[in-house]
Design a protein around this nucleic acid. Sequence first.
DNA 1: TCGTGCTATGCAACTTGTTGCATAGCAAGT
DNA 2: ACTTGCTATGCAACAAGTTGCATAGCACGA
Lengths: 190, 190
Amino acid sequence: MALEHAILVSLLEKPGSGYELARRFDRFIGYFWTATHQQIYRVLKRMENDGWVEARDVPQQRRPDKKEYSVADLGRAALSSWLHDPIEPESVRHDLAVKIRGAAFDDPAALIREVERHRQAHRDRLAHYLAGEERDFTGAAAGAAVPEAPPDAERELQHVVLRGGIAYERMMIGWLDDVLATLARFGPGH
Amino acid sequence: MALEHAILVSLLEKPGSGYELARRFDRFIGYFWTATHQQIYRVLKRMENDGWVEARDVPQQRRPDKKEYSVADLGRAALSSWLHDPIEPESVRHDLAVKIRGAAFDDPAALIREVERHRQAHRDRLAHYLAGEERDFTGAAAGAAVPEAPPDAERELQHVVLRGGIAYERMMIGWLDDVLATLARFGPGH
DNA sequence: TCGTGCTATGCAACTTGTTGCATAGCAAGT
DNA sequence: ACTTGCTATGCAACAAGTTGCATAGCACGA
């Protein structure tokens, strides 16, 4: 599995607690990975036992203390080895596509609102990604002004992955328009 | 979960055995769902116990007998109820995207072959989908000549889902070209 | 002081999905 | 006879992911 590797990459980009990781996965890494905090805590514990990451207690003001994790040598090696292993192209699972084909055996028009809801969600995500791109990559200073900006390769690779998320959302919005037009043809009364 | 519902839809489109379902999922439904035969047999058994599907023994010539499943009333009702329930937009998990961001902490150029392999896989799938579209939807007769062709709504909805698969593969190929161009900029010699 | 809400960590039970193996019929080639 | 390969079904063990719950610090407002 790759959750461990996703965590390693995220911690290499910036050390953090389980809670922080969960938020990164929720908010921004969302366009290529998702995980709940329970999953993250569990995997993080196993990774610590395996010596992939190291924990450090960080006392905090105005909020509970946290455990900050960073990547250990063993973790770096594990990531490197995984990077050199070929993986299979992803398998896809789209509940919505199942619903669309299933609608043929029910009322196609009843699905319109659902599809519209999904389209709106994809629009929201697209807007979120575009705002992030503007802020972090194509903005005036483009991060070059920030003193502790990550090196070129890291930034460029983050950006190309973000562009993938953007391309995905645009594709989905276009396709859902197509779906809506198709459903409309079997409209009220049908 | 939706594997049960995917099976219901597939069986409504055409009754079949567990083995046949596994092949449908492998070969063609692949662009919106995947499942192994073990999963399918297990779920099919549970669905039979729940009265969602009915099995019929079909003796065959020149090959082992099979159990042909078809959808029972309870299954149709379960599908209908699921269709009217809202679902969450899919969560995405792209190992390859994790690798791309991870490459910043290893050798970016080492990833080029892997990405090329994936691009080729997506090209193959695209060709497969386009061939299926030509054959089933945009070919001269467009299935209208076939006496037992499914009704309009069913065909149209199958087609729009297929168009989604095609759009997805095209988007992926385009993005992977972008990724390759980006990786090339951190080429040999670091 | 009581509730609300965010930060922060975690357990337990359950559901899904994967991997490896086993069985068996039947056809075709060596 | 033996192997290969496709059809056809299935078990068992394991890995991964989800859901519901529990705890606790601290801030802020009613």
